[in-house]
Structures are given as structure tokens and as C-alpha cells.
Amino acid sequence: MAQNKDFTDKENVDVAMLEYKDGIKVGSGLTINDDKTYIGTVSQIYDNVHGHEEQVDVLTNNGNNRAAVPYSASDAERAQVHAYSVQAV
């Protein structure tokens, strides 16, 4: 996951640990700091797509609109994304 230069070392670790959180699914909003800091919404999950046991969660952050931005989103919808992160295991 991309490191946010404004995060402390602890916050970066907390973000990295989100990949181990139970119940992550498309549409899940992920936060740290006791739910005070919004990281992003899970927009895609790739689990062993190519048979190499890869696991990737794609998070999108649209600011106040916390809806997931799906792969099929239009260019206009994608332009609204402020940040994205990819977590790979």
C-alpha cells in the first residue's frame, strides 16, 4: 500500500494490517485510528486469479463519497477518485 507522508509510522503499520481484517468485501470502508481516519473503500478483490495464490485488495478514496469505484466505472467516475491503494499478500 502506498505510504502517506502525513501518517506516523504507527498509522502506516495500521494501514498495512488492514489486509488481515476479517470480513473485508467489496464496498467495505476501511479506517484506522478508532474509525477516525478513512483510508478507502474496497472496490475490487482479486483472489488467486492467475493461479499463483495472489491476493489483492484495491481501495479507492473519493473523499466524502465513500462508494466503491468498480472496474467498470466511467472515466468521469474514475476522475473523482482522490487516492487509491493496492494491498497485495
Rank of each mutant, 00 (worst) to 15 (best):
A2N: 09
A2C: 03
Q3H: 11
N4R: 01
N4E: 01
N4Q: 03
N4Y: 07
D6R: 00
D6C: 03
F7P: 02
F7N: 02
T8Q: 10
D9S: 05
D9Y: 03
K10N: 12
K10H: 13
K10D: 13
K10S: 14
E11N: 00
E11Y: 00
V13L: 11
V13I: 10
D14Q: 05
V15L: 07
A16P: 02
A16N: 07
A16I: 00
M17L: 06
L18W: 07
E19R: 08
Y20P: 11
D22P: 11
D22M: 08
D22E: 13
D22Y: 08
G23A: 06
I24F: 09
K25I: 11
S28I: 01
S28M: 02
L30E: 11
L30H: 12
T31K: 13
N33A: 13
D34G: 10
D35K: 15
T37N: 00
I39G: 03
I39R: 07
I39S: 00
I39Q: 03
G40P: 08
G40W: 03
G40Q: 01
G40Y: 01
T41C: 14
V42L: 06
V42P: 09
I45A: 15
I45L: 14
Y46G: 02
Y46R: 03
D47H: 14
D47N: 14
H50M: 11
H52D: 15
H52S: 14
E53D: 15
E53G: 09
E53F: 10
E54F: 14
E54C: 14
Q55W: 09
V56R: 14
V56Y: 10
V56A: 13
D57G: 04
V58L: 13
L59Y: 06
N61K: 00
N61P: 08
N61F: 01
N62C: 05
G63V: 03
G63P: 13
N65K: 09
R66T: 13
A67R: 02
V69S: 01
V69R: 01
V69P: 05
P70M: 04
P70T: 01
P70K: 04
P70Y: 04
Y71P: 10
A73R: 00
S74E: 09
S74Q: 07
A76V: 00
E77C: 08
R78I: 12
R78W: 11
R78D: 13
Q80F: 03
V81I: 08
H82E: 05
A83M: 04
A83C: 09
A83L: 07
Y84M: 15
S85P: 02
S85K: 04
S85I: 00
S85V: 01
S85D: 05
V86R: 10
Q87V: 00
V89N: 15
V89E: 14
